[in-house]
Amino acid sequence: MIHLLSLQGVSKVFVQGRHEVRALDNIILDVAEGECLAVVGESGSGKSTLANLVLGIYPPSTGTIAFRGEVLPAKRELVHRRAIQLVQQNPLSSLNPQRSIGASLRLPLDVHGLGERGRRGDHVGQLLEEVGLPADYAGRSPSSLSGGERQRVAIARALACESELVVLDEPTSALDVLVQARVLKLLNDLRSRRGLTYVFITHDLSVVRNIADRVAVFERGRLVELNPTEKIFSDPDHAYTRRLICAVPVVTADEVRLRDRLMKKENTSA
């Protein structure tokens, strides 16, 4: 079986003067088509390095990254850049403040030469409607939108060039909880409607529980656990995963019980 994305022994070493920082160490990871893989870990775990490698912002130091079975070159072709897109944490800094929403959404269409030139304006309107915004938002500027609306625009932009794999880097952590619920819902809908594949990078395990099919847990550049979501939250293999789950501030009595159960396990295994 050919995976949509496949990382084979990927390492990334950053050299700072005489220091070497091994940001990712021998990562072996496959992502199936249509799945949502969550990548979790604390700061410095290598989550963002992984995102940058997948997006081709820099090449791996060793190992290969393959997309649909084809090893990606260090310098990506336009077609690869089209297929893999990014949604960042803060839409205010990822959308150009000088450019209208419509212009931001049209740019990827122009760059990748998608659709007829004359129909691209309509296409922008359709994209906005697909993410739950009115088509006439095309004429507005990012600063006139709320945080949730801006994140919807950022999602629409990632979808504009018919991407297949979307790297979501903390897409909802800057949003209020009510807005977050709606954006997560949108991401779920889009995934099933468009058959998208997500690499969902986050530190929020409660979000992961409700959106991911599988979870990859990173600790200091190493992949310490890779399991289906169900398994991660009921019977995690690694003590670090347990610690991460137990640190989540929770709101219901059921959650407290789950946490207590995991904590007990942590103590007996230690």
Partner: peptide, 20 residues
């Protein structure tokens, strides 16, 4: 109620439909 319902649970109850 809306605010509480919107918090994702680690017990996994899906993402609720909530008006913002």
């Amino acid at each position: 109620r809306a605010l509480l319902a919107a918090v994702p649970r680690i017990t996994g109850e899906g993402i609720p439909e909530i008006d913002d």
